[in-house]
Amino acid sequence: MNWLLVIAGAMVGAPLRYLTDRAVQSRHDTVFPWGTFTVNVVGCLVLGVLTGAVTAGTASSEIQLLLGTGLCGALTTYSTLSYETLRLAEEGARFFAAANAVAGIVAGLGAAFTGAAVAQAMWA
Rank of each mutant, 00 (worst) to 15 (best):
Val24His: 06
Val106Ala: 11
Ala116Gln: 03
Ala93Lys: 08
Thr69Gly: 02
Arg17Gly: 02
His28Phe: 15
Leu5Tyr: 08
Thr58Asn: 12
Gly73Arg: 01
Leu86Val: 14
Tyr83Lys: 14
Ala59Ser: 01
Phe96Met: 06
Val31Gly: 11
Ile7Tyr: 15
Thr55Cys: 05
Ile105Thr: 13
Ser60Glu: 11
Ala56Pro: 07
Ile7Gly: 15
Pro15Tyr: 08
Ala103Met: 14
Val39Asp: 11
Val54Gln: 07
Gly43Phe: 07
Ser82Met: 05
Ala97Ser: 12
Val39Glu: 13
Cys72Leu: 06
Val41Asp: 02
Phe37Thr: 03
Val49Gln: 04
Gly108Thr: 00
Ala97Asp: 10
Ala111Asn: 01
Thr38Gly: 14
Gly104Gln: 03
Thr69Ser: 05
Gly43Glu: 09
Ser79Lys: 08
Leu81Tyr: 12
Met1Ser: 11
Asp29Asn: 15
Ser60His: 11
Gly57Ser: 07
Leu86Cys: 07
Ala98Lys: 10
Ala101Cys: 04
Ala124Lys: 04
Arg94Phe: 12
Gly70Trp: 01
Gly13Gln: 12
Val42Asn: 05
Ala23Glu: 03
Ala107Gly: 10
Leu86Pro: 05
Phe113Leu: 15
Thr77Lys: 08
Arg22Asp: 14
Val54Cys: 04
Ala8Pro: 14
Ala97Pro: 05
Trp123Ser: 06
Val41Asn: 01
Phe32Cys: 03
Ala117Met: 01
Val46Phe: 11
Ala89Met: 11
Asp29Glu: 15
Trp3Lys: 13
Gln25Leu: 10
Gly13Cys: 12
Ser26Gln: 14
Val118Ile: 09
Ala116Lys: 04
Asn100Tyr: 09
Val39Ser: 10
Ala10Thr: 15
